[in-house]
Measured scan of single mutants.
Amino acid sequence: MDEEYDVIVLGTGLTECILSGIMSVNGKKVLHMDRNPYYGGESSSITPLEELYKRFQLLEGPPESMGRGRDWNVDLIPKFLMANGQLVKMLLYTEVTRYLDFKVVEGSFVYKGGKIYKVPSTETEALASNLMGMFEKRRFRKFLVFVANFDENDPKTFEGVDPQTTSMRDVYRKFDLGQDVIDFTGHALALYRTDDYLDQPCLETVNRIKLYSESLARYGKSPYLYPLYGLGELPQGFARLSAIYGGTYMLNKPVDDIIMENGKVVGVKSEGEVARCKQLICDPSYIPDRVRKAGQVIRIICILSHPIKNTNDANSCQIIIPQNQVNRKSDIYVCMISYAHNVAAQGKYIAIASTTVETTDPEKEVEPALELLEPIDQKFVAISDLYEPIDDGCESQVFCSCSYDATTHFETTCNDIKDIYKRMAGTAFDFENMKRKQNDVFGEAEQ
């Protein structure tokens, strides 16, 4: 370990593993360490099931009705991949897709007046949907046509809207959309967690709705994908990429100290040895004095023996409960997957309800979601602090990732990755940087 590296990475969460992969592909010498004996950090999948019970201090362990412990891979952080989103792009560019198998999530649902409705995925579904009345549908269709044709580089498509100054509230007004449709559009399509976006320039919202539609167009059922064997497969896929390009991995490796000289990182000390480096990437748990708390998320993992009611017996789905429907500031989400994804025993389902904490009784906040899941065989409640770095790391060369937020997709995580890359490399992130180099010394032969 007593060696000189360009970059040392602490923690094998998804953000850290993707950055480690990119740095290795770009010719950097990388050492990647984790104090845990497993990959994934906060974003790991726990197996066998006995391990999950232990982690949540349920000492009696799983009953026999849960089947074989080894058949379970339970995500600690519930997220899906947008089919046309940035993480899929990263997987394709790096060819990490060859280590993973994905399934399309069967449906996306939205909560309205105590019931759940399928988010329409085709024009026919939209016309048949009970989510809105006849005239509302016509106006909504006009709005969707506007979004589909919108091109930020072609003012002819703006229809009198200025993407940089017109607020989204004004765009909704222009198409005369009612409150329910606005809730549905902002939260189930643009996937905002709160209503803060309404008074911001509309460009980002329009682009988010386009991303949803384009992702949906790829597979038809929903815009989301999920990897077989759980999300823990993602960091491992990128760790393989890093290793192929010469990255060194050490799990179960305690970090005793991060060594600084004149305010700059110069190395990491572990078990009496020092590895030197020019730059350091880590998750917040490794540098508690360089991060601040930015809120909390509650996630309740529920094991069920039945599909969720009114989802047409889907073996995977997402449910969004827009905040307006339950008098909150932030949406509540449910991600459900099952034995069909090799993450649970035969006939079992895993539904994870999550939201940003707003009160001193977080469990009560998630109740509307839990009511949709009854009866629940077993619950595991996790309340996590969200951390963000206190500075950009440019001076110390210590670059810290943000905690995983309450969103049900990876777009915010990818933004964090691109942002850290830019601060480390001094140049904007470009997907081309992730391409495997042809015929290089570490390149794998085609399968």
Score class of each variant (00 low, 15 high):
residue 434 M to T: 09
residue 372 L to E: 05
residue 6 D to G: 02
residue 89 K to L: 15
residue 253 K to D: 14
residue 87 L to M: 00
residue 444 E to I: 15
residue 187 H to Y: 08
residue 364 K to A: 11
residue 100 L to E: 05
residue 63 P to N: 08
residue 51 E to Y: 14
residue 220 G to Y: 08
residue 296 Q to R: 11
residue 125 E to Q: 07
residue 405 D to E: 02
residue 350 I to V: 12
residue 17 C to H: 04
residue 43 S to R: 00
residue 118 K to F: 02
residue 385 D to C: 11
residue 342 N to E: 04
residue 70 R to P: 12
residue 9 V to M: 08
residue 137 K to T: 11
residue 54 K to R: 12
residue 183 D to V: 07
residue 20 S to Q: 01
residue 322 P to T: 00
residue 208 R to S: 00
residue 374 E to G: 11
residue 152 E to G: 11
residue 128 A to I: 13
residue 210 K to N: 03
residue 330 S to Q: 12
residue 331 D to Y: 02
residue 427 T to D: 13
residue 31 L to V: 02
residue 193 R to I: 15
residue 326 V to T: 12
residue 314 A to V: 09
residue 187 H to K: 15
residue 242 S to R: 03
residue 153 N to H: 14
residue 416 D to S: 15
residue 74 V to T: 05
residue 270 S to F: 10
residue 304 L to Y: 07
residue 75 D to E: 03
residue 174 K to R: 11
residue 358 E to S: 14
residue 287 I to F: 03
residue 117 Y to C: 11
residue 182 I to N: 09
residue 136 E to K: 11
residue 379 K to Q: 13
residue 263 G to I: 14
residue 135 F to V: 11
residue 265 V to K: 15
residue 112 K to L: 09
residue 415 N to G: 06
residue 243 A to C: 10
residue 298 I to A: 15
residue 106 E to V: 09
residue 172 Y to V: 04
residue 423 R to P: 00
residue 126 A to E: 02
residue 67 G to R: 07
residue 9 V to G: 02
residue 336 M to E: 14
residue 394 C to G: 13
residue 327 N to D: 10
residue 32 H to M: 03
residue 96 V to E: 10
residue 178 G to F: 14
residue 98 R to N: 15
residue 81 L to I: 00
residue 265 V to H: 10
residue 370 L to M: 01
residue 115 K to T: 04
residue 377 D to S: 13
residue 437 K to T: 13
residue 17 C to Y: 02
residue 92 L to E: 04
residue 357 V to D: 10
residue 71 D to C: 13
residue 221 K to V: 09
residue 109 F to H: 15
residue 74 V to Y: 00
residue 243 A to F: 01
residue 16 E to M: 04
residue 309 K to W: 09
residue 314 A to G: 07
residue 18 I to L: 13
residue 191 L to T: 11
residue 262 N to Y: 00
residue 202 C to R: 02
residue 203 L to V: 08
residue 242 S to L: 04
residue 433 N to R: 02
residue 139 R to C: 08
residue 193 R to P: 10
residue 440 D to T: 07
residue 389 P to K: 13
residue 255 V to F: 03
residue 399 F to C: 01
residue 393 G to Y: 01
residue 140 F to S: 02
residue 65 S to A: 10
residue 359 T to N: 00
residue 443 G to V: 07
residue 13 G to W: 11
residue 299 R to F: 10
residue 269 K to M: 09
residue 418 K to N: 10
residue 263 G to V: 01
residue 401 S to R: 04
residue 142 K to Y: 03
residue 39 Y to I: 08
residue 179 Q to R: 10
residue 300 I to C: 01
residue 223 P to S: 11
residue 88 V to L: 05
residue 196 D to V: 03
residue 143 F to A: 04
residue 92 L to K: 13
residue 186 G to D: 04
residue 221 K to G: 02
residue 318 Q to R: 07
residue 298 I to M: 02
residue 57 Q to H: 12
residue 96 V to L: 10
residue 221 K to N: 11
residue 236 Q to N: 14
residue 77 I to T: 07
residue 329 K to W: 13
residue 150 F to L: 10
residue 165 T to P: 03
residue 87 L to S: 02
residue 203 L to S: 15
residue 372 L to C: 03
residue 16 E to Q: 09
residue 9 V to S: 02
residue 218 R to P: 07
residue 366 V to M: 11
residue 135 F to P: 08
residue 284 P to A: 06
residue 142 K to R: 09
residue 402 C to F: 06
residue 58 L to I: 10
